[in-house]
């Protein structure tokens, strides 16, 4: 499949924090591609440059954020240098880590409609898209509630609905599950999964929740000190447990369990998910 999102040797530095101090180099030659409809999980320790990479994907860098930008980011064949973030917002949707800080309205429905009104859509179409986004994200019952009153998981789903109502072809999720409890995480990832099925959205999912990665991602890339250190299929990347640990990351717990089984002579397993592990163990135990 032809790549839909392409990062070509991207370098980003932020302005120097003071006289005589070096400008922090955040991205140092990142090259990456994501196919249409694919979900790429982007892992990396804190400070690796994941959020900066997200800002590059929807054109906020270089258009709005101060700093130096080199290289190229192409979405559907168009350079992000050519499009303003406003134009790009119809193609690339970005959900920030802290949903609360991106809300501008007092009710959920106004919040979701805000972007659609910015696009200048007619009222009928706004209503249609609003209802659809709320339904897919399962927050239709919260329409008239204040976003401030919602739980963390609900806030993230409202933020996601606000972005998805604009029908972007690429969705960038910047650690959306960081502040959520397990129930909130599961609900959010179910919602993302549903919209992938419904709309075939291409997803770049920045996360540190490696246990959830096999549930959604097709491929994994690891960002380490501003560069892509590892990239490939889930098994390929999670086979590099020792390397990931050196970078301050870990593999999914089920994969870790499989490795321990292997090292104690109980078989050569490479499970990634609980279902897969349960199936294999049931087979082995004859259940």
């Amino acid at each position: 499949m032809a790549p839909f999102v392409v990062l070509d040797d991207v370098h980003v530095s932020y302005p120097s924090p003071g006289p005589g101090l070096e400008a922090p180099r955040i991205l140092r030659g990142v090259s990456l591609s994501v196919a249409e409809g694919e979900c790429l999980a982007l892992l990396g320790p804190t400070g690796a440059g994941k959020s900066t990479l997200c800002l590059c994907l929807n054109g906020l860098i270089p258009h709005l954020v101060d700093g130096t930008f080199r290289g190229g980011v192409h979405i559907a064949g168009h350079s992000t240098r050519e499009w303003t973030p406003g134009e790009l917002s119809q193609t690339v949707g970005l959900v920030f880590q802290d949903a609360e800080s991106q809300f501008v309205s007092m009710t959920v429905e106004d919040e979701v409609a805000f972007g659609l009104e910015s696009l200048g859509l007619p009222p009928d179409e706004i209503e249609g898209r609003l209802a659809e986004a709320l339904e897919v994200m399962e927050v239709g019952g919260l329409r008239s509630r204040s976003p401030l009153e919602l739980s963390g998981g609900q806030k993230q789903r409202v933020a996601l609905a606000a972005v998805m109502a604009m029908r972007p072809r690429v969705l960038v999720l910047d650690e959306p599950t960081t502040n959520l409890d397990p129930v909130g995480k599961a609900a959010l990832l179910r919602a993302v999964s549903r919209l992938r099925v419904a709309w075939g959205t291409t997803i770049v999912w920045v996360t540190q929740d490696v246990d959830w990665v096999p549930h959604l991602a097709d491929r994994v890339a690891v960002l380490w000190e501003g560069q892509i250190a590892l990239e490939g299929g889930l098994r390929e990347v999670f086979d590099q447990g020792a390397l990931l640990r050196r970078m301050g990351l870990r593999v999914p717990q089920v994969r870790e369990l499989a490795a321990r089984f292997g090292s104690t002579g109980l078989g050569g397993y490479a499970w990634l998910g609980v279902d897969e592990a349960a199936e294999a163990l049931r087979g082995r135990l004859g259940g």
């Binding site: 906020l60 954020v65 406003g86 917002s89 920030f96 501008v104 805000f114 972007g115 696009l119 972005v163």
Partner: peptide, 8 residues
């Protein structure tokens, strides 16, 4: 950034 990302 959030406003710009939502087309404002």
């Amino acid at each position: 950034l959030a406003l710009a990302a939502r087309g404002f």
